[in-house]
Simulated assay, not measured.
Amino acid sequence: MSAKKVEKEAERALVAARAAVDEAERAVKKLDKRSRKAAEELTARLEQAAKDARKAVRRSEQTARAAKEQADAIAGPAVAASPSSGIPTFHSLRDRAKAQGIQGYSRMNKAQLLHALGEG
């Protein structure tokens, strides 16, 4: 093989290599665009999930506040003493014992309820 032929073959191989490199660079750019787009989509989904989580926390806090207010409202009147003597009624003592989760309150008399509630 002559030197000119070898040079021409090398030139063709070099052109083919340059074309292959250019094609690879284009593929990398496409891949980068896809990766960037996928990362942006994941970021958007993560931000939405964070918003949803914050909203759920706010809702649960509101529900807890409402439940506490309701429990306070229910427990409030049960604390009221009988109007004439200042001593709580049997029924109000039972209601308070039930609200506090005292076991066996339904079988207790007034003195036992007062003792169980820490008032006697």
Rank of each mutant, 00 (worst) to 15 (best):
M1P: 10
S2W: 02
S2A: 08
S2V: 02
A3Q: 14
K4G: 07
E7V: 09
K8M: 10
K8V: 11
E9S: 05
A10R: 12
A10V: 03
A10C: 01
E11T: 06
A13D: 04
A13E: 07
L14I: 10
V15H: 07
A16M: 11
A16N: 11
R18M: 12
R18H: 10
R18V: 02
A19E: 14
A19S: 05
A19Y: 03
D22P: 05
D22H: 09
D22E: 14
E23K: 08
E23I: 03
E25Y: 05
R26Q: 09
R26T: 05
R26Y: 04
A27V: 09
A27I: 08
V28L: 11
V28C: 05
K29M: 09
K29C: 06
L31I: 04
L31K: 08
L31P: 00
L31D: 03
K33V: 08
K33L: 14
S35Q: 12
S35Y: 07
R36E: 08
K37V: 07
K37L: 15
K37C: 08
K37T: 13
A38W: 02
A39H: 04
E40T: 03
L42A: 10
L42R: 10
T43G: 01
T43I: 03
T43N: 08
L46Y: 04
Q48M: 05
A49K: 14
A50L: 07
A50V: 03
A50N: 03
A50F: 04
D52E: 14
D52F: 00
D52T: 02
R54M: 08
R54N: 08
K55P: 06
A56T: 01
R58F: 07
S60F: 05
S60R: 15
S60Q: 13
S60E: 10
E61Y: 12
T63F: 06
R65S: 01
A67P: 00
A67M: 14
Q70S: 10
A71P: 00
A71I: 02
A71K: 11
D72H: 07
D72K: 13
A73Q: 13
A75E: 15
P77E: 10
P77V: 13
A78N: 02
A80L: 14
A80E: 15
A81Q: 12
A81F: 03
S82P: 11
S82C: 11
P83R: 15
P83Y: 12
S84I: 02
S84M: 05
S84A: 10
S84D: 08
S85P: 07
G86R: 02
I87Q: 10
P88W: 04
F90Q: 11
H91C: 03
H91P: 00
H91N: 15
L93S: 04
R94P: 01
R96A: 07
A97W: 00
K98Y: 09
K98W: 04
A99P: 01
A99K: 06
A99E: 14
A99M: 15
G101V: 02
I102Q: 03
Q103K: 15
Q103M: 12
Q103G: 09
G104A: 08
G104P: 06
G104H: 09
S106T: 09
S106E: 15
S106W: 07
K110L: 08
K110E: 15
A111W: 11
Q112C: 01
L113R: 01
H115P: 00
H115W: 12
A116G: 09
L117E: 02
G118K: 14
G118Y: 10
E119G: 06
E119Y: 06
E119S: 11
G120V: 08
